[in-house]
Amino acid sequence: MNEAVLVLSGLDPCGGAGIAADIETINQFGLTPLPIVTTMTVQNTQSVVEVQPVNIGLIAKQFHHLQADIAFKVVKIGLLCSSEQIRVIANLMQDKTIVLDPIVKASTQEVLLQTQVISTLKQELLPLVKILTPNMAELFALSGEKDEQKAIEKLACKWILLTTTDVSESSIEHRLYHNAKLVKNYTYNKLSGNYHGSGCTLSSAISALIASGANIEIACKNALDYTYQTLLNAKNIGKTQFHPNRIPAKNTHTGEKYQ
């Protein structure tokens, strides 16, 4: 078991998404998050109005300084908003287990990644990823395809957990692919609210579970169940989107909280 998970993601000042969500989620599974901020944002529950990449030299220094002191294998990556960031971070990740939440748009629909940055992400980082967690819009944006199976095949990631909340009406079917073949379906009732940070919660929970020794299928199932519970208990602290209520996670085998 690895007791720490490195997190590379953006800072959301309202606390619903980004690195704040990652820290909360990983803590709830009894692990220590090692957060490195990649992007500064100006946002709230209603909109994103500005995005500024953090200096890549600082990110690299933080990574090396952490690695010299703390052992970690699993890395959760969220928002990377420049090609330079992606190239440097990819070079740092050669021996890591990467969970990538490919954030292309904010949940309030502002575009966060431009076409050239998406291209760099596909070329430099995707080949290193253990599991990718896109929603349908992100899958199509990354692949350039409009057919799900063709898009999965084109991305050529070993594991892809496709979430479909963004295209579902009442029942949601998330799908887990291994080597472009469908291996698991996970069905949930769609909730009525708009949520800020559900994707970050899911990918961070998967990261924590993998670091705790779970295999991919178990990690995905438990992380999806956990994320759904955070949405059922979501908090309304702003004017628009709800925050997932990241309560302590329970081991689905024992029913006990992670320590």
Rank of each mutant, 00 (worst) to 15 (best):
V5N: 00
K181G: 08
G10Y: 08
V54W: 07
A214I: 06
A234I: 11
V37Q: 04
K221V: 12
K181R: 14
R175A: 08
L80T: 00
A223Q: 02
S198Q: 09
T115C: 07
W159F: 13
K221D: 14
V167H: 09
K122G: 01
V42M: 12
K154V: 03
D69M: 11
E50C: 14
A71M: 05
G18C: 08
L142N: 02
I237E: 13
K130W: 13
I86D: 00
G30T: 00
L66N: 05
Q109R: 12
A71D: 04
V7K: 12
P35C: 04
A249W: 10
D101K: 01
I23W: 06
Q62F: 14
I103D: 01
E124S: 13
S47W: 11
L209D: 00
M93D: 09
A90P: 01
E173I: 15
E153L: 03
G10I: 03
I247R: 07
L113V: 11
G255E: 02
L132S: 01
H253P: 03
Q62T: 12
V42S: 12
N245Y: 09
G193A: 15
T38Y: 12
T252D: 05
L142P: 00
V111N: 13
F29A: 01
T32L: 11
T187N: 10
I172W: 11
V5E: 00
W159H: 11
Q46N: 13
N44C: 13
S198F: 13
S168Y: 11
Q114S: 11
A223S: 09
I70C: 07
I216D: 04
Q114C: 10
I89R: 00
G213C: 05
N215L: 08
Q114G: 08
E110S: 15
L112F: 13
K181L: 15
A4S: 15
T164L: 14
A4N: 11
V75H: 02
